[in-house]
Amino acid sequence: MTTEVSPPLPLPNELTAPFWEGASKGQLVIQHCNSCGHFQHAPEPICSACLSFDLGSAPVSGKGTVYTFCIPTQAFHPWFEDKLPFVLAVVELDDQPGLKMITNIVNVNPDDVKVGDRVEVTFQPLGEGFMLPVFHPAAQ
């Protein structure tokens, strides 16, 4: 018996589409304020730094540091049943102090990950053409 298990797929909207479109082209794209240059993630209709509504998006370096992580050992969605254990992490991006995103650390033994590790973005197919920005240990 085979069962089709669907991944949890995003439903892009006006604010979130640039992130997913960037990922599909192999770029990590974050919402960016056209008035003050502030990056924010997740995207919002207003810039929390200067209250401008003039918001766009911009590619970032894709380099960052592991702020924290955990290793889920129980799947709360069928898609993850055969992916346990994996590394769920928060990465702080180099491009702006405190600019963080939820992500996965891949291509690594989960027990080898440490807070403070340097990481770089890479992209994994999620399904239906979506690419997921994830991180792997930075080249030495």
Partner: peptide, 30 residues
């Protein structure tokens, strides 16, 4: 199923972050 994730949860659920237990693990590790 294939309904798609609206809103900002689309930046957490595709990474396997679904419940409080996930952020709890993040806080403890930090």
């Amino acid at each position: 199923g294939n309904q798609g994730i609206p809103g900002n949860q689309q930046f957490s659920m595709p990474y396997g972050s679904f419940t409080g237990s996930h952020w709890a693990g993040l806080y403890m590790q930090r």
